[in-house]
Nucleic acid binder design. Structure first.
Length: 287
DNA sequence: GCCAGCCTGTTG
DNA sequence: CAACAGGCTGGC
């Protein structure tokens, strides 16, 4: 499930614990989830950076602990139910732990990092430097929503490119903007007052600007609340997030809209469960 | 574009 | 028991 705010929270939670740890061993309980490009070294390397791009998390590895000499990268995509869990002492691998990285911290203590995924949709890549670009999904990612690269002009051009598609499909498309998933998509559309099934061609310039700002807001607030936990998501230490308490429409079918009191509805748009307020988000038809 | 399929667990 | 779940790919 993790969307951008959850992956960012995982990154922030793991960074202080993993930086300068040495990778001593990799146990693959389910090799099918591991994709390896080239033969970049991972064993006896040191984690010197944790990066995020869209919903991907990347751990950069160096040959030395003291000098950052990038020799390889571990990349993770969590898809629906993936988790990356840090353990400061040994425990038996859980039922759905597919990969375990054995680590040694600066003082030589043994630590563990488990990739766990009930549905086995998630993936772990072992890559040479820059190898993330070999993954088609990664290489096609659009701009980061909180970066200056995601300009109004950029968003307008993506909208014009897909006139007959719905705005829901637009925001879920990782080529348009990286890291938005079903939760933050529904929340952004509510804030912008736009019906999720609206055709992109029906959006005015001010609709588009409002929507872009709403995406930035919900993503930033999601990070601020350390992600949304309503079933599976926890950070690298097993802690839940809090943004589920701030949700205005997602998972609120039949409940009262906080703005107008109408019942929140759930429909299917772009093949996904979609929550919205029929009064605050009217469907405008323009052709 | 849409939607089945990938998987397992949970819910109605 | 069938339907559904927050993502993404690939086949139409």
């Amino acid at each position: 499930m993790p969307e951008l705010p959850e992956v960012e929270t995982i990154r922030q939670s793991l960074s202080p614990l993993l930086l300068s740890c040495e990778v001593k061993e990799i146990e693959m309980f389910c090799p099918e989830v591991v994709i390896q490009y080239g033969d970049a070294p991972v064993l006896n390397t040191f984690i010197f950076d944790l990066r995020r791009r869209g919903k991907y998390l990347l751990l950069d590895l160096s040959k030395d602990r003291s000098v950052s000499q990038h020799v390889s990268t571990i990349m993770v995509h969590f898809r629906m139910t993936g988790k990356l869990l840090y353990k400061d002492s040994f425990e038996e691998a859980a039922k759905h732990t597919h990969v375990r990285f054995h680590l040694s911290d600066e003082s030589g203590e043994k630590r563990y990092l488990d990739f766990n995924d009930v549905r086995r949709f998630g993936r772990v890549w072992l890559l040479p430097p820059g190898g993330e670009k070999l993954d088609p999904g990664f290489s096609r990612l659009g701009p980061e929503p909180l970066s200056v690269e995601w300009t109004a002009a950029n968003f307008f051009s993506q909208i014009k490119r897909r006139p007959r598609s719905t705005v829901k499909a637009l925001l879920l498309n990782q080529e348009v903007v990286a890291g938005v998933g079903n939760i933050y998509c529904d929340e952004a559309l509510f804030r912008a007052g736009i019906h999720p099934a609206s055709r992109n061609e029906s959006l005015s310039e001010s609709d588009a600007l409002r929507l872009q700002e709403a995406v930035r807001e919900v993503i930033a607030e999601g990070i601020g609340h350390k992600g949304t936990s309503f079933s599976d998501y926890v950070d690298g230490l097993g802690n839940s997030g809090h943004f589920q308490l701030q949700l205005k429409v997602f998972q609120r079918e039949g409940e009262a809209c906080h703005v107008c009191g109408s019942e929140i509805e759930k429909i299917r748009v772009a093949g996904r469960g979609t929550h919205f307020c029929p009064v605050c988000q009217p469907l405008e038809k323009k052709d």
